[in-house]
Design a binder for these strands. Structure first.
Length: 489
RNA sequence: GGCCUCAUCGUCUAGCGGUUAGGACACGGCCCUUUCAAGGCCGCGGCGCGGGUUCGAUUCCCGCUGAGGUCACCA
Protein backbone atom coordinates (compact mmCIF):
# COMPACT_ATOMS: atom_id res chain seq x y z
CA UNK A 1 0.00 0.00 0.00
CA UNK A 2 1.19 3.43 -0.89
CA UNK A 3 2.10 6.07 1.63
CA UNK A 4 -0.69 7.54 3.70
CA UNK A 5 -1.52 11.10 2.82
CA UNK A 6 -4.08 13.38 4.38
CA UNK A 7 -4.88 16.95 3.61
CA UNK A 8 -6.30 20.05 5.13
CA UNK A 9 -8.16 22.01 2.49
CA UNK A 10 -9.55 25.23 3.89
CA UNK A 11 -10.99 28.01 1.86
CA UNK A 12 -9.37 31.35 2.56
CA UNK A 13 -12.08 33.21 4.41
CA UNK A 14 -9.83 35.48 6.40
CA UNK A 15 -10.23 33.76 9.70
CA UNK A 16 -9.81 30.28 11.10
CA UNK A 17 -12.91 28.75 12.53
CA UNK A 18 -12.11 26.52 15.48
CA UNK A 19 -14.04 23.65 13.92
CA UNK A 20 -11.81 23.94 10.89
CA UNK A 21 -8.74 23.86 13.04
CA UNK A 22 -10.00 20.71 14.70
CA UNK A 23 -10.46 19.17 11.27
CA UNK A 24 -6.89 20.18 10.42
CA UNK A 25 -5.65 18.66 13.68
CA UNK A 26 -7.38 15.35 13.08
CA UNK A 27 -6.20 15.20 9.48
CA UNK A 28 -2.69 15.92 10.69
CA UNK A 29 -2.91 13.33 13.43
CA UNK A 30 -4.40 10.78 11.07
CA UNK A 31 -1.35 11.17 8.86
CA UNK A 32 1.10 11.07 11.75
CA UNK A 33 -0.57 8.05 13.29
CA UNK A 34 0.20 6.11 10.13
CA UNK A 35 3.56 7.66 9.46
CA UNK A 36 2.13 9.54 6.50
CA UNK A 37 2.26 12.96 4.95
CA UNK A 38 0.05 15.93 5.64
CA UNK A 39 -0.64 18.36 2.86
CA UNK A 40 -2.22 21.78 2.69
CA UNK A 41 -4.38 22.80 -0.22
CA UNK A 42 -6.14 26.12 -0.65
CA UNK A 43 -9.70 25.88 -1.92
CA UNK A 44 -10.30 29.30 -3.36
CA UNK A 45 -12.81 28.51 -6.05
CA UNK A 46 -15.39 31.00 -4.89
CA UNK A 47 -14.51 34.28 -6.54
CA UNK A 48 -17.16 36.12 -4.55
CA UNK A 49 -15.58 35.24 -1.26
CA UNK A 50 -12.04 36.24 -1.99
CA UNK A 51 -10.39 37.97 0.94
CA UNK A 52 -6.99 39.61 0.79
CA UNK A 53 -4.40 38.13 3.09
CA UNK A 54 -6.60 35.18 3.91
CA UNK A 55 -4.05 32.59 2.87
CA UNK A 56 -1.55 34.13 5.23
CA UNK A 57 -4.03 33.64 8.06
CA UNK A 58 -4.07 29.94 7.25
CA UNK A 59 -0.27 29.72 7.24
CA UNK A 60 -0.09 31.62 10.50
CA UNK A 61 -2.67 29.45 12.16
CA UNK A 62 -0.99 26.20 11.22
CA UNK A 63 2.33 27.60 12.37
CA UNK A 64 0.99 28.76 15.72
CA UNK A 65 -0.84 25.49 16.23
CA UNK A 66 2.27 23.54 15.32
CA UNK A 67 0.66 21.62 12.48
CA UNK A 68 3.45 21.32 9.98
CA UNK A 69 2.47 20.42 6.43
CA UNK A 70 4.73 18.36 4.19
CA UNK A 71 3.34 19.72 0.95
CA UNK A 72 1.47 22.88 0.16
CA UNK A 73 1.60 26.25 -1.56
CA UNK A 74 4.12 27.46 0.99
CA UNK A 75 6.57 24.61 0.58
CA UNK A 76 5.71 23.07 -2.77
CA UNK A 77 5.51 19.39 -3.55
CA UNK A 78 5.10 16.87 -6.35
CA UNK A 79 1.50 17.79 -7.07
CA UNK A 80 1.93 21.55 -7.24
CA UNK A 81 0.24 23.92 -7.56
CA UNK A 82 -1.67 23.54 -4.29
CA UNK A 83 -3.99 26.46 -4.83
CA UNK A 84 -7.13 25.56 -6.73
CA UNK A 85 -7.43 28.84 -8.60
CA UNK A 86 -4.11 27.95 -10.21
CA UNK A 87 -5.38 24.60 -11.42
CA UNK A 88 -8.32 25.69 -13.55
CA UNK A 89 -7.20 23.95 -16.78
CA UNK A 90 -6.96 20.67 -14.92
CA UNK A 91 -10.56 20.73 -13.73
CA UNK A 92 -11.69 21.86 -17.16
CA UNK A 93 -9.97 18.93 -18.80
CA UNK A 94 -11.40 16.36 -16.42
CA UNK A 95 -14.88 17.81 -16.59
CA UNK A 96 -14.69 17.70 -20.37
CA UNK A 97 -13.78 14.08 -20.13
CA UNK A 98 -16.85 13.31 -18.06
CA UNK A 99 -19.05 15.07 -20.57
CA UNK A 100 -17.56 13.00 -23.36
CA UNK A 101 -18.14 9.83 -21.38
CA UNK A 102 -21.73 10.78 -20.74
CA UNK A 103 -21.19 11.15 -16.98
CA UNK A 104 -21.76 14.89 -17.06
CA UNK A 105 -23.63 17.36 -19.20
CA UNK A 106 -23.92 21.01 -20.06
CA UNK A 107 -26.70 22.84 -18.30
CA UNK A 108 -27.93 26.15 -19.64
CA UNK A 109 -30.50 26.86 -16.99
CA UNK A 110 -30.39 30.45 -15.85
CA UNK A 111 -29.97 31.37 -12.22
CA UNK A 112 -33.43 32.89 -12.40
CA UNK A 113 -34.96 29.61 -13.47
CA UNK A 114 -33.14 27.80 -10.70
CA UNK A 115 -34.25 30.36 -8.18
CA UNK A 116 -37.86 29.93 -9.20
CA UNK A 117 -37.48 26.21 -8.97
CA UNK A 118 -36.04 26.51 -5.52
CA UNK A 119 -38.76 28.84 -4.39
CA UNK A 120 -41.49 26.54 -5.61
CA UNK A 121 -39.89 23.70 -3.68
CA UNK A 122 -39.90 25.75 -0.52
CA UNK A 123 -43.67 26.06 -0.60
CA UNK A 124 -45.28 24.36 2.41
CA UNK A 125 -47.48 22.14 0.24
CA UNK A 126 -44.63 21.06 -2.05
CA UNK A 127 -44.41 17.30 -2.21
CA UNK A 128 -41.87 16.00 -4.74
CA UNK A 129 -38.12 16.03 -4.93
CA UNK A 130 -36.05 19.05 -4.01
CA UNK A 131 -33.10 20.15 -6.08
CA UNK A 132 -32.36 20.41 -9.75
CA UNK A 133 -35.08 19.01 -11.98
CA UNK A 134 -32.86 17.65 -14.74
CA UNK A 135 -34.10 20.15 -17.28
CA UNK A 136 -30.90 20.02 -19.37
CA UNK A 137 -29.98 16.46 -18.55
CA UNK A 138 -31.03 15.00 -21.84
CA UNK A 139 -30.70 17.89 -24.24
CA UNK A 140 -30.08 16.69 -27.81
CA UNK A 141 -26.48 17.04 -28.90
CA UNK A 142 -27.34 19.43 -31.75
CA UNK A 143 -29.12 21.73 -29.38
CA UNK A 144 -26.20 21.70 -26.96
CA UNK A 145 -23.75 22.49 -29.74
CA UNK A 146 -25.93 25.31 -31.01
CA UNK A 147 -26.26 26.82 -27.55
CA UNK A 148 -22.53 26.50 -27.01
CA UNK A 149 -21.76 28.06 -30.37
CA UNK A 150 -24.05 30.94 -29.53
CA UNK A 151 -22.01 31.57 -26.42
CA UNK A 152 -24.82 30.77 -24.00
CA UNK A 153 -23.61 30.69 -20.40
CA UNK A 154 -23.55 27.19 -18.95
CA UNK A 155 -22.44 25.04 -16.10
CA UNK A 156 -21.39 21.42 -16.23
CA UNK A 157 -23.39 19.03 -14.12
CA UNK A 158 -22.75 15.53 -12.98
CA UNK A 159 -25.11 13.00 -14.55
CA UNK A 160 -25.89 10.91 -11.52
CA UNK A 161 -27.56 7.53 -11.88
CA UNK A 162 -31.23 7.65 -10.92
CA UNK A 163 -31.58 4.10 -9.70
CA UNK A 164 -29.66 1.82 -7.43
CA UNK A 165 -27.66 2.72 -4.35
CA UNK A 166 -24.21 4.02 -3.66
CA UNK A 167 -22.43 2.94 -0.52
CA UNK A 168 -19.10 3.34 1.19
CA UNK A 169 -17.49 2.48 4.45
CA UNK A 170 -16.66 5.35 6.72
CA UNK A 171 -14.01 4.87 9.40
CA UNK A 172 -16.17 6.48 12.03
CA UNK A 173 -19.73 6.09 10.80
CA UNK A 174 -19.42 2.64 9.32
CA UNK A 175 -21.51 1.66 6.30
CA UNK A 176 -23.16 4.62 4.66
CA UNK A 177 -25.56 3.95 1.85
CA UNK A 178 -27.93 6.19 -0.07
CA UNK A 179 -30.45 5.63 -2.79
CA UNK A 180 -29.23 7.20 -5.98
CA UNK A 181 -32.69 8.63 -6.41
CA UNK A 182 -31.77 11.00 -3.58
CA UNK A 183 -28.72 12.28 -5.39
CA UNK A 184 -28.59 15.60 -7.19
CA UNK A 185 -26.97 16.34 -10.50
CA UNK A 186 -24.46 18.52 -8.73
CA UNK A 187 -22.67 21.33 -10.50
CA UNK A 188 -19.08 20.47 -11.37
CA UNK A 189 -17.97 23.57 -13.25
CA UNK A 190 -19.60 26.92 -12.55
CA UNK A 191 -20.59 29.50 -15.16
CA UNK A 192 -17.48 31.50 -14.38
CA UNK A 193 -15.34 28.53 -15.35
CA UNK A 194 -14.30 27.75 -11.79
CA UNK A 195 -14.96 24.28 -10.43
CA UNK A 196 -17.16 23.75 -7.41
CA UNK A 197 -15.76 22.27 -4.22
CA UNK A 198 -17.67 19.14 -5.08
CA UNK A 199 -15.65 18.55 -8.21
CA UNK A 200 -12.33 20.19 -7.48
CA UNK A 201 -11.65 18.33 -4.26
CA UNK A 202 -12.25 14.96 -5.90
CA UNK A 203 -9.89 15.69 -8.77
CA UNK A 204 -7.27 17.15 -6.46
CA UNK A 205 -7.45 14.43 -3.85
CA UNK A 206 -6.87 11.89 -6.57
CA UNK A 207 -4.12 13.77 -8.36
CA UNK A 208 -2.38 14.61 -5.09
CA UNK A 209 -2.46 11.05 -3.87
CA UNK A 210 -4.64 11.69 -0.85
CA UNK A 211 -5.44 8.35 0.77
CA UNK A 212 -7.53 9.47 3.74
CA UNK A 213 -10.07 12.26 3.67
CA UNK A 214 -10.66 13.69 7.13
CA UNK A 215 -13.43 16.27 7.22
CA UNK A 216 -16.58 17.28 9.08
CA UNK A 217 -19.60 15.02 9.05
CA UNK A 218 -21.65 17.59 7.19
CA UNK A 219 -20.22 15.86 4.11
CA UNK A 220 -21.39 12.37 4.98
CA UNK A 221 -24.58 12.61 2.96
CA UNK A 222 -22.83 14.12 -0.05
CA UNK A 223 -19.98 11.68 -0.21
CA UNK A 224 -21.84 9.20 -2.44
CA UNK A 225 -21.98 11.89 -5.12
CA UNK A 226 -18.21 12.18 -4.89
CA UNK A 227 -17.74 8.45 -5.03
CA UNK A 228 -19.71 8.39 -8.25
CA UNK A 229 -17.23 10.85 -9.71
CA UNK A 230 -14.32 8.64 -8.69
CA UNK A 231 -16.03 5.71 -10.33
CA UNK A 232 -16.75 7.62 -13.50
CA UNK A 233 -13.04 8.24 -13.80
CA UNK A 234 -12.18 4.72 -12.85
CA UNK A 235 -10.36 5.92 -9.76
CA UNK A 236 -10.32 4.36 -6.34
CA UNK A 237 -11.85 6.61 -3.74
CA UNK A 238 -9.97 7.46 -0.57
CA UNK A 239 -10.79 6.22 2.90
CA UNK A 240 -13.27 8.53 4.56
CA UNK A 241 -13.00 9.71 8.12
CA UNK A 242 -15.94 11.94 8.86
CA UNK A 243 -15.65 13.85 12.09
CA UNK A 244 -18.52 14.49 14.50
CA UNK A 245 -19.53 18.12 14.40
CA UNK A 246 -18.56 20.59 17.05
CA UNK A 247 -21.64 22.33 18.32
CA UNK A 248 -22.05 25.70 19.92
CA UNK A 249 -24.76 27.37 21.94
CA UNK A 250 -26.31 30.70 21.04
CA UNK A 251 -27.51 33.34 23.48
CA UNK A 252 -30.76 31.45 24.07
CA UNK A 253 -28.95 28.21 24.73
CA UNK A 254 -29.93 26.62 21.43
CA UNK A 255 -27.45 24.12 20.08
CA UNK A 256 -26.26 24.12 16.48
CA UNK A 257 -23.15 23.64 14.42
CA UNK A 258 -20.52 25.89 15.92
CA UNK A 259 -20.59 29.24 14.17
CA UNK A 260 -20.35 32.94 14.78
CA UNK A 261 -23.89 32.94 16.04
CA UNK A 262 -23.63 29.66 17.90
CA UNK A 263 -20.66 29.85 20.22
CA UNK A 264 -18.49 32.18 18.15
CA UNK A 265 -15.01 31.08 17.50
CA UNK A 266 -12.14 32.30 15.50
CA UNK A 267 -8.78 30.88 16.43
CA UNK A 268 -7.13 34.29 16.15
CA UNK A 269 -9.73 35.83 18.44
CA UNK A 270 -9.13 33.14 21.00
CA UNK A 271 -5.38 33.68 20.89
CA UNK A 272 -5.95 37.41 21.25
CA UNK A 273 -8.23 36.67 24.17
CA UNK A 274 -5.34 35.04 25.99
CA UNK A 275 -5.76 31.37 25.20
CA UNK A 276 -2.58 29.36 24.65
CA UNK A 277 -2.33 27.40 21.39
CA UNK A 278 -1.28 24.30 23.32
CA UNK A 279 -4.39 24.48 25.46
CA UNK A 280 -6.66 24.92 22.46
CA UNK A 281 -5.05 22.00 20.66
CA UNK A 282 -5.30 19.79 23.72
CA UNK A 283 -8.92 20.70 24.27
CA UNK A 284 -10.15 20.28 20.71
CA UNK A 285 -8.24 17.03 20.32
CA UNK A 286 -10.52 15.64 23.01
CA UNK A 287 -13.67 16.84 21.29
CA UNK A 288 -14.57 13.63 19.53
CA UNK A 289 -11.59 11.51 20.44
CA UNK A 290 -10.14 10.07 23.61
CA UNK A 291 -7.24 7.80 24.46
CA UNK A 292 -9.43 5.22 26.24
CA UNK A 293 -7.68 6.03 29.49
CA UNK A 294 -8.24 8.70 32.10
CA UNK A 295 -5.43 10.85 30.79
CA UNK A 296 -6.33 14.13 29.24
CA UNK A 297 -3.27 16.33 29.19
CA UNK A 298 -1.62 15.89 25.82
CA UNK A 299 0.94 17.84 23.90
CA UNK A 300 0.82 17.72 20.12
CA UNK A 301 3.81 15.37 20.13
CA UNK A 302 2.02 13.02 22.49
CA UNK A 303 -1.12 13.15 20.41
CA UNK A 304 0.88 12.15 17.37
CA UNK A 305 1.86 9.01 19.19
CA UNK A 306 -1.48 8.22 20.76
CA UNK A 307 -4.05 9.19 18.18
CA UNK A 308 -5.89 6.54 16.21
CA UNK A 309 -8.72 7.39 13.80
CA UNK A 310 -10.81 4.41 14.81
CA UNK A 311 -11.23 5.84 18.30
CA UNK A 312 -13.09 8.86 16.96
CA UNK A 313 -16.61 9.31 18.29
CA UNK A 314 -19.77 9.60 16.29
CA UNK A 315 -21.80 11.98 18.36
CA UNK A 316 -21.52 15.74 18.14
CA UNK A 317 -19.78 17.58 20.96
CA UNK A 318 -20.64 20.94 22.41
CA UNK A 319 -17.72 23.33 22.67
CA UNK A 320 -17.31 24.16 26.35
CA UNK A 321 -15.40 27.32 27.17
CA UNK A 322 -15.30 26.41 30.86
CA UNK A 323 -13.24 23.36 30.23
CA UNK A 324 -11.03 25.11 27.70
CA UNK A 325 -10.41 27.72 30.38
CA UNK A 326 -9.34 25.03 32.79
CA UNK A 327 -6.92 23.57 30.24
CA UNK A 328 -5.61 27.04 29.64
CA UNK A 329 -4.94 27.53 33.35
CA UNK A 330 -3.11 24.23 33.42
CA UNK A 331 -0.91 25.23 30.51
CA UNK A 332 -0.24 28.66 31.96
CA UNK A 333 1.04 27.04 35.13
CA UNK A 334 3.26 24.72 33.14
CA UNK A 335 5.04 27.60 31.48
CA UNK A 336 8.54 28.42 32.70
CA UNK A 337 8.60 31.72 34.62
CA UNK A 338 10.48 33.26 31.70
CA UNK A 339 8.05 32.05 29.08
CA UNK A 340 5.12 33.18 31.18
CA UNK A 341 6.62 36.62 31.70
CA UNK A 342 7.13 37.03 28.01
CA UNK A 343 3.50 36.30 27.27
CA UNK A 344 2.16 38.22 30.26
CA UNK A 345 4.28 41.34 29.95
CA UNK A 346 2.08 43.20 27.45
CA UNK A 347 -0.94 42.58 29.64
CA UNK A 348 0.91 43.61 32.79
CA UNK A 349 2.10 46.81 31.19
CA UNK A 350 -1.41 47.52 30.06
CA UNK A 351 -2.36 48.06 33.69
CA UNK A 352 0.96 48.85 35.32
CA UNK A 353 2.64 51.78 33.59
CA UNK A 354 5.05 52.46 36.42
CA UNK A 355 8.10 50.49 35.39
CA UNK A 356 9.59 50.75 38.84
CA UNK A 357 7.38 47.82 39.71
CA UNK A 358 9.10 44.59 38.83
CA UNK A 359 7.09 42.86 36.13
CA UNK A 360 8.87 39.60 36.83
CA UNK A 361 7.67 39.60 40.43
CA UNK A 362 4.18 40.56 39.39
CA UNK A 363 4.17 37.77 36.84
CA UNK A 364 5.23 35.25 39.46
CA UNK A 365 2.17 36.15 41.53
CA UNK A 366 -0.09 35.96 38.53
CA UNK A 367 1.01 32.68 37.04
CA UNK A 368 -0.52 30.52 39.73
CA UNK A 369 -3.90 32.15 39.63
CA UNK A 370 -4.73 32.83 36.02
CA UNK A 371 -6.94 31.14 33.49
CA UNK A 372 -6.18 33.41 30.59
CA UNK A 373 -3.94 36.34 29.87
CA UNK A 374 -6.69 38.85 29.37
CA UNK A 375 -7.64 38.45 33.01
CA UNK A 376 -4.39 40.17 33.98
CA UNK A 377 -4.97 43.91 33.71
CA UNK A 378 -8.08 43.99 35.87
CA UNK A 379 -6.16 42.39 38.73
CA UNK A 380 -3.38 44.96 38.74
CA UNK A 381 -5.15 48.29 38.71
CA UNK A 382 -4.13 49.20 42.25
CA UNK A 383 -0.45 49.41 41.40
CA UNK A 384 -0.56 52.66 39.50
CA UNK A 385 -3.27 54.28 41.56
CA UNK A 386 -5.05 53.48 44.79
CA UNK A 387 -8.73 53.03 44.12
CA UNK A 388 -11.40 54.73 46.17
CA UNK A 389 -12.55 52.33 48.85
CA UNK A 390 -14.78 52.12 51.88
CA UNK A 391 -13.40 51.50 55.36
CA UNK A 392 -15.66 48.47 55.45
CA UNK A 393 -13.01 46.72 53.40
CA UNK A 394 -10.93 46.48 56.55
CA UNK A 395 -13.51 44.26 58.11
CA UNK A 396 -12.93 40.58 57.58
CA UNK A 397 -14.27 37.96 59.88
CA UNK A 398 -11.99 35.10 58.97
CA UNK A 399 -8.87 37.20 59.34
CA UNK A 400 -10.22 38.73 62.52
CA UNK A 401 -9.79 42.20 61.14
CA UNK A 402 -12.17 44.91 62.34
CA UNK A 403 -12.46 48.67 62.27
CA UNK A 404 -10.81 48.61 65.71
CA UNK A 405 -7.89 46.33 64.93
CA UNK A 406 -7.09 47.86 61.55
CA UNK A 407 -5.95 51.30 62.79
CA UNK A 408 -3.78 49.70 65.46
CA UNK A 409 -2.38 47.20 62.98
CA UNK A 410 -1.52 49.95 60.56
CA UNK A 411 0.12 52.14 63.14
CA UNK A 412 2.19 49.30 64.45
CA UNK A 413 2.88 48.06 60.95
CA UNK A 414 4.26 51.41 59.85
CA UNK A 415 6.45 51.53 62.89
CA UNK A 416 7.94 48.11 62.29
CA UNK A 417 8.28 48.48 58.57
CA UNK A 418 10.15 51.77 58.93
CA UNK A 419 12.93 49.69 60.44
CA UNK A 420 13.09 47.07 57.74
CA UNK A 421 16.18 47.52 55.60
CA UNK A 422 16.08 44.36 53.57
CA UNK A 423 12.74 44.89 51.76
CA UNK A 424 11.97 41.33 50.79
CA UNK A 425 8.85 39.30 51.08
CA UNK A 426 10.30 37.06 53.74
CA UNK A 427 11.69 39.84 55.93
CA UNK A 428 8.49 41.81 55.59
CA UNK A 429 6.45 38.83 56.61
CA UNK A 430 8.39 38.29 59.81
CA UNK A 431 8.34 41.96 60.62
CA UNK A 432 4.57 42.13 60.36
CA UNK A 433 4.19 38.86 62.19
CA UNK A 434 6.19 40.34 65.00
CA UNK A 435 4.00 43.42 64.97
CA UNK A 436 0.96 41.19 65.32
CA UNK A 437 2.52 39.36 68.25
CA UNK A 438 3.24 42.60 70.01
CA UNK A 439 -0.32 43.77 69.50
CA UNK A 440 -1.65 40.41 70.56
CA UNK A 441 -3.38 40.10 67.18
CA UNK A 442 -3.60 37.19 64.86
CA UNK A 443 -1.08 37.63 62.06
CA UNK A 444 -3.95 37.53 59.59
CA UNK A 445 -5.49 40.61 61.11
CA UNK A 446 -2.39 42.64 60.44
CA UNK A 447 -1.82 41.19 57.01
CA UNK A 448 -5.36 41.98 56.03
CA UNK A 449 -5.20 45.57 57.20
CA UNK A 450 -1.88 46.20 55.51
CA UNK A 451 -2.96 44.63 52.26
CA UNK A 452 -6.12 46.70 52.16
CA UNK A 453 -4.21 49.83 53.08
CA UNK A 454 -1.79 49.51 50.18
CA UNK A 455 -4.18 48.17 47.58
CA UNK A 456 -7.67 49.29 48.52
CA UNK A 457 -8.74 46.06 46.90
CA UNK A 458 -10.56 43.13 48.41
CA UNK A 459 -8.99 40.46 46.23
CA UNK A 460 -5.43 40.81 45.02
CA UNK A 461 -2.93 38.52 43.38
CA UNK A 462 -0.50 37.77 46.17
CA UNK A 463 -0.61 38.52 49.87
CA UNK A 464 0.25 41.68 51.79
CA UNK A 465 3.99 41.21 51.84
CA UNK A 466 4.18 40.05 48.22
CA UNK A 467 2.68 43.36 47.25
CA UNK A 468 4.71 45.43 49.71
CA UNK A 469 7.87 44.02 48.20
CA UNK A 470 6.87 45.04 44.70
CA UNK A 471 5.62 48.44 45.75
CA UNK A 472 8.91 49.19 47.49
CA UNK A 473 9.52 50.71 50.88
CA UNK A 474 8.79 54.31 50.06
CA UNK A 475 5.53 53.78 48.20
CA UNK A 476 4.36 51.19 50.70
CA UNK A 477 4.86 53.45 53.68
CA UNK A 478 3.34 56.42 51.89
CA UNK A 479 0.21 54.40 51.19
CA UNK A 480 0.04 53.01 54.70
CA UNK A 481 0.47 56.41 56.30
CA UNK A 482 -2.22 57.86 54.13
CA UNK A 483 -4.52 55.04 55.10
CA UNK A 484 -3.70 55.46 58.76
CA UNK A 485 -4.38 59.17 58.51
CA UNK A 486 -7.90 58.42 57.40
CA UNK A 487 -8.59 56.80 60.73
CA UNK A 488 -7.08 59.69 62.65
CA UNK A 489 -9.35 62.17 60.93
C1' G B 1 -40.88 18.46 4.32
C1' G B 2 -37.51 14.16 1.95
C1' C B 3 -33.05 11.62 3.05
C1' C B 4 -29.15 10.60 6.60
C1' U B 5 -26.87 10.48 11.43
C1' C B 6 -26.57 10.59 16.61
C1' A B 7 -28.41 9.53 21.85
C1' U B 8 -24.26 7.56 29.41
C1' C B 9 -24.10 13.03 34.96
C1' G B 10 -25.40 20.32 33.07
C1' U B 11 -20.73 19.63 29.56
C1' C B 12 -16.53 16.35 27.41
C1' U B 13 -16.29 11.16 27.90
C1' A B 14 -14.94 5.42 29.56
C1' G B 15 -18.10 1.26 29.00
C1' C B 16 -18.49 -2.95 23.89
C1' G B 17 -24.51 -8.87 28.41
C1' G B 18 -23.37 -9.66 34.81
C1' U B 19 -19.51 -3.00 37.05
C1' U B 20 -21.08 -0.17 43.96
C1' A B 21 -21.81 2.66 35.81
C1' G B 22 -15.26 5.03 35.99
C1' G B 23 -12.61 9.85 34.88
C1' A B 24 -12.46 15.29 33.71
C1' C B 25 -14.83 20.39 33.69
C1' A B 26 -18.52 22.98 36.30
C1' C B 27 -21.03 22.99 41.14
C1' G B 28 -21.10 22.22 46.89
C1' G B 29 -18.10 21.19 51.33
C1' C B 30 -13.52 20.49 53.97
C1' C B 31 -8.14 20.93 54.36
C1' C B 32 -4.06 24.07 53.25
C1' U B 33 -3.38 29.34 53.44
C1' U B 34 -0.88 36.33 54.18
C1' U B 35 -6.90 38.02 50.57
C1' C B 36 -8.06 35.29 46.13
C1' A B 37 -6.42 31.50 43.47
C1' A B 38 -3.54 27.14 42.79
C1' G B 39 -3.08 22.27 45.22
C1' G B 40 -5.21 18.01 48.19
C1' C B 41 -9.58 15.32 50.00
C1' C B 42 -14.85 14.44 50.07
C1' G B 43 -19.57 15.10 47.92
C1' C B 44 -23.74 16.18 44.42
C1' G B 45 -25.12 14.40 39.73
C1' G B 46 -26.25 10.13 34.44
C1' C B 47 -27.66 5.25 31.15
C1' G B 48 -34.45 9.63 26.98
C1' C B 49 -39.18 6.40 26.54
C1' G B 50 -41.72 1.77 25.12
C1' G B 51 -41.42 -2.99 23.38
C1' G B 52 -38.67 -7.30 22.48
C1' U B 53 -34.02 -11.10 22.61
C1' U B 54 -31.69 -13.20 27.06
C1' C B 55 -31.16 -16.49 33.23
C1' G B 56 -29.60 -11.31 33.01
C1' A B 57 -29.72 -5.38 29.48
C1' U B 58 -26.48 1.04 29.75
C1' U B 59 -24.63 -2.65 26.32
C1' C B 60 -28.09 -6.52 21.00
C1' C B 61 -32.92 -5.74 17.77
C1' C B 62 -37.47 -2.78 16.62
C1' G B 63 -40.51 1.46 17.36
C1' C B 64 -41.05 6.28 19.50
C1' U B 65 -39.18 10.75 21.16
C1' G B 66 -35.42 14.24 21.11
C1' A B 67 -31.25 16.54 18.88
C1' G B 68 -28.20 17.48 14.66
C1' G B 69 -26.71 17.30 9.54
C1' U B 70 -27.99 17.70 4.39
C1' C B 71 -30.99 18.82 0.14
C1' A B 72 -26.53 26.08 -3.55
C1' C B 73 -23.24 28.03 -9.87
C1' C B 74 -20.65 27.97 -0.56
C1' A B 75 -17.25 25.15 0.89
Amino acid sequence: MSEVKTRFAPSPTGYMHIGNLRTALYAYLTAKSMDGKFILRIEDTDQDRKVDGAIQVIYDTLAIAGLHNDEGPDCGGPAAPYVQSERLPIYREYAQKLVEQGDAYYCFCTKERLAELHEAQQAPDFKGRHGYDGHCRDLPKEEVDALLAAGTPYVIRQKAPQAGTTAYRDVVFGEVSVNNSELQDIVLIKADGFPTYNFAHVVDDHLMGVTHVTRGSEYVAQTPSYILIYRAFGWEHPTYIHLPLIMGKDAEGNVAKLSKRHGSVSFQDMIADGYLPEAIINYIALLGWNPKTDEEMFTLAELEKRFTPDAINKSPAIFDYEKLLWFNGQYIRKLSPEAFLEKALPFIREAVKNEAYDAGKIAALLQQRLEKMTQIPAQLTFFDAMPEFEDELYVNKKSKSTLETAPAALAKGIEVLEGVEDWTNEKLYYALKEAADELGFKANAVMWAVRIAVTGTMVTPGGATDILEILGKEESLTRMKKAAARFAA
